[in-house]
Nucleic acid binder design. Structure first.
Lengths: 248, 248
DNA sequence: CTTCGTTATTATCAGTATGACAATTAAGAG
DNA sequence: CTCTTAATTGTCATACTGATAATAACGAAG
């Protein structure tokens, strides 16, 4: 069946958008970065009703001429002041939240995204207030998960953490939270921060070595200890997966 | 920080929905079922422009007072005539497609869902035309994937298949495409249909047995061959995962 | 320049999982 | 009873895992 281009063009010229429910679409962000051995997320504190004073995910309306992912990048820059042209950032779609009463003001469907920022594992990227009033601040994920949040954002944050934790079992996505070249210990620190656990260094190296590309170079040994090899990540799948230890 | 209920109520009473982009939200469905050893999907053929005559996913607008998932269930019933009260069906969200030009008529954001129907592995559920003109028909997935489809529906179908194939590695979701009680061979047939490959029966049984609950009962041996044990599935995760054989 | 503390990497080993394939068991059909 | 078919169990070499130890490569302190 070949497309009927002429009939289709006539149809489109005559087409008038009509009765469909008026729904606003937003792009919200679960932003993760690793600092001082712990996983942090960028949250804003709401300055107005509803949920005044509570923590919320950064995000905003999807514009008429942009995709949800484009809106996510734009809002990430606007609400955190991050220079995305400079900073490597990984953004992927998480899920869409569409319960009719999730926003008491009006019908809002939110396309949530997962954003991973690259750090050296020690210091977090500086966040600055954007055009909107509320500035984003870093919060330790495993602590803030126990507090209430605005709207259904606590559930979204939990889903984002679960997604990242799961995906790290069978991909090298954890490397997106590090500089392009990193050491095995830096990568292990990301796993430990996200999984909130500790991993045996030797076994971790044995498992990850064949999944990474060895640059052949080594770090300048910082203070005590041998110099570490520098690796880069590719998009290989980890097989069999690196299992997250059962919680306990 | 406790919620300021009084101030919030006043705010909500005064709130008027205002300038946000007008975007229509739809729920589309990738419906899978296994029949005669192959994976099938329910598709409608478009009767009007645009993409007149091409295959499309069933779906429709999300109503003002329903979630995207509720809309998916409703559209599944409407466009396929399936009695969901009777037929066990698994629905989960797949992803949201929001490219600004994905529908030439107007701005439409689609929340795609994955729906798995239970069959005996041989015959497919009967589809009947719903209120809409176009009736859904079953199409073999691995063949229809090579044909063009309306809108971005070919990409959505591909994503749905990838999601199902991947999830079957580490969950027992394949059992959602079978009756509550099923044999090991029936389950293996689902894996083979989705993965489009063959699996060694003995190794499959060894791997899956500890993931399932044995009812202790057996089938009446149909024609030749020993009777098979009947199992039910729980929500255990398969660990380590059952790896899909590398294609070839 | 030797020793010590620290960290990265490699090695060992027992237990478990895998893929390929063979053997056994349990029907129904002729 | 024997043949055919299908389900299940067994075998075996290889690979992977968790725990733990041994080795190697530094900087710093004496």
């Amino acid at each position: 069946m070949t497309r009927d281009t002429k009939g289709e063009q006539e149809f489109l010229d005559a087409y008038k958008p009509k009765e469909y429910p008026a729904i606003a679409v937003t792009a919200d962000l679960v932003v993760f970065a690793v600092g001082s051995g712990a996983l942090y997320t960028a949250l804003v504190r709401r300055g107005g009703h509803p949920f005044k004073g509570e923590l919320a995910l950064p995000g905003g309306f999807v514009g008429s001429r942009e995709s949800a992912e484009q809106a996510a990048y734009r809002e990430l820059a606007e609400e955190t002041g991050l220079d995305l042209g400079h900073l490597p950032v990984h953004v992927e779609q998480l899920a869409t939240y569409s319960h009719p009463e999730r926003d008491p003001r009006m019908r809002v469907v939110s396309v949530a995204h997962l954003a991973l920022l690259a750090t050296d594992g020690h210091s977090l990227p500086e966040l600055s207030a954007g055009t909107d009033a509320a500035a984003a601040e870093w919060h330790p994920v495993h602590r803030v998960l126990e507090e209430p949040m605005a709207f259904d954002h606590a559930a979204i944050l939990r889903d984002g953490l679960d997604r990242l934790a799961g995906k790290m079992e069978y991909t090298t996505v954890a490397a997106r939270m590090l500089p392009r070249e990193f050491t095995m210990t830096q990568l292990r620190t990301v796993y430990e921060a996200v999984w909130n656990t500790t991993l045996a260094a030797g076994n971790f190296t044995r498992k990850m070595t064949p999944q990474l590309d060895d640059t052949g170079r080594k770090t300048q040994a910082a203070a005590g200890g041998a110099p570490a090899s520098l690796f880069t990540a590719s998009d290989r799948h980890i097989h069999p997966p690196l299992a997250k230890p059962r919680t306990g």
